[in-house]
Design a binder for these strands. Sequence first.
DNA 1: AGCGCCTTCTAACAAATGTTAATGCCCGGC
DNA 2: GCCGGGCATTAACATTTGTTAGAAGGCGCT
Lengths: 239, 239
Amino acid sequence: MLESLYLNLGQHDALSDAEKALLVGAMTFERHFATGQDIVASGSRPTYSTLILDGLAARYKVLENGGRQFTSLQVPGDFVDLHAFLLKTMDHGIVALSPCHVVFADHSRLRAITEEAPHLTRLLWLDTLVDGAIHREWIVAMGRRSKTSHLAHLVCELFVRLQVVQRTNGMSFHLPLSQAELADVIGLSVVHMNRVIGALRKIGVVSWANHTVTILDWHKLQEISEFDPTYLSMAREPR
Amino acid sequence: MLESLYLNLGQHDALSDAEKALLVGAMTFERHFATGQDIVASGSRPTYSTLILDGLAARYKVLENGGRQFTSLQVPGDFVDLHAFLLKTMDHGIVALSPCHVVFADHSRLRAITEEAPHLTRLLWLDTLVDGAIHREWIVAMGRRSKTSHLAHLVCELFVRLQVVQRTNGMSFHLPLSQAELADVIGLSVVHMNRVIGALRKIGVVSWANHTVTILDWHKLQEISEFDPTYLSMAREPR
DNA sequence: AGCGCCTTCTAACAAATGTTAATGCCCGGC
DNA sequence: GCCGGGCATTAACATTTGTTAGAAGGCGCT
């Protein structure tokens, strides 16, 4: 059941069978969320952390003027609120962007892992560090890239992350986001989001229809976005 | 010597004397960096992590067109590259924005802490999680706040973080950033950065001169920026 | 005091992005 | 098959932000 988690953690360093067993043992119950449902509410203090088995979710904050900003997209194999294990209080919400199948890991069992399994602890820590590295890349994209480049970068990132957990199909992947939702990822108005997607299409590097993105020219896409996957720490080495 | 680190980690949960001793034991040698010097180079694989004892530093990435974006500001008590302990390869550089006094912690000794001191490990992990929470807040600011609100938020954040490590003076703090550097924080052109600072001044919520920021109206500043310190996890509770 | 350099600040204009509104398309419910 | 609602797309116009250029201020150095 935890295959995608093994793929996610295992891309950085080898996972032993004992460690896999500890992860299985940390899981309590499973649940399904419908599109648009909150998986974790902002301000809550969960006593478990949520692992996505299938589906797409996102962290978000809402401002007083009603504006919403997604701060991350979460794919299968991601612990969407592993940080709440130590941060305690959620400072943001997490919403299902597609039907999501998740499983909950109890904080008490995660704590036991930190007491007894240092290597696995480091891998979980690393998982949150990669999260931070992705945040930094988003900050750079928002601050200093053109919007076209930003979107291209996002496509590259999602493709690579989904490939790790075997959710790509050739050079295509499913992206169940409306343009309004995408605008809340990039930080744009819907109208301009539409223009930017049109620009990427026009260049001919991607086709984008029916919520399916197909990369037509990976090399050029990478060039436009200056995408360098170093920040995803995909090298398998002792951690 | 590590007072500011104790203040930083200790704001989240109590630090025992044994833990403080472990931290002291992890430190190897000290060093000074001049303004503008790189403390850690992008692409390097450091075998130690750097703790700021005094001074201001920043993480940054540079794009091909020469644009630079800071992805975080680091104050005394911050481990600027604790994440490199597990990420291994630096995907960004770290530069001194003022004269910096730092001390290096060997990765082998940090690793020993993860093997032997679970609670201290969780506090160090937490430190990187707060880092991530700050990143998320920056993403929200870049994506959905007005530039004035973004700058106001930054002022609030820095004030609170500096207060924790006792680097404020009443409602003032020293911010040794040129407007060009500030523009690389917010993601603006220098000219527009100047306009935005002018706007904040005009509203009368801050005075800003000689690299010293004084908050004249905390309440209004907080209102403009919708600053809510929850994300900094300043509550002291078991972690 | 005078010089050179960096930084702040302004102006004028150009480009990017937001807003409002309208159109057409697709898809599910009846 | 028809209707209604959400979504994608486009247009026209407003606002924000960037660019280029230059003036003015501060500050260390000689």
